[in-house]
Amino acid sequence: MAAPRFWREIPNRYNLIGTRCGNCNKVFFPPRYICPQCRRMGKLEPYKLSRRGKIVTYGVVHVAPEGFEDLVPYVLAIVELEDGPRLTTQVVDCDPNEIKIGDEVEMVFRRIGADREDGVIYYGFKFRKVE
């Protein structure tokens, strides 16, 4: 992957910047560039989301895709942010056996991946349980 693909989404990935429709006020993350309800009548603007949420569902990954092998077993989850939108993320620094649907989590800044050993390193959000 060339750097621009990740680079252009740095605000979204580092700081959970989503979008909000100025017409219907619905908040989107991951960002959308046209409001599915209002379509061309909508006006999407950047919107900074809350960094806390709850686990809606999760799985424990034992067979990881390339680049994630060293994290096994890791918790993959869908988190619902306080502002409403949901996202797919990892829940880090936890015992997978102690995760439950409904657990409160907060955003952390982690390495997401890298282009091999000599390529660009990608950073972004993951989540951890609120102690």
């Binding site: 989404e9 991951p30 809606v56 569902t57 999760y58 799985g59 424990v60 990954v61 067979v63 990881a64 895709p65 994630f68 994290l71 890791y74 993959l76 989850a77 869908i78 996202l87 797919t88 993320t89 990892q90 649907i101 997401i112 991946g113 990608y122 972004g124 993951k126």
Partner: peptide, 26 residues
């Protein structure tokens, strides 16, 4: 799957269906 927002987070197909399975069980 969504490369930018699912696969980049470490999701695989079994992973995404596991998320549905867990919720269905719940």
């Amino acid at each position: 799957a969504d490369q930018e927002w699912e696969v980049n987070a470490g999701a695989t197909f079994p992973g995404l269906y596991a998320l549905m399975a867990r919720r269905h069980m719940y």
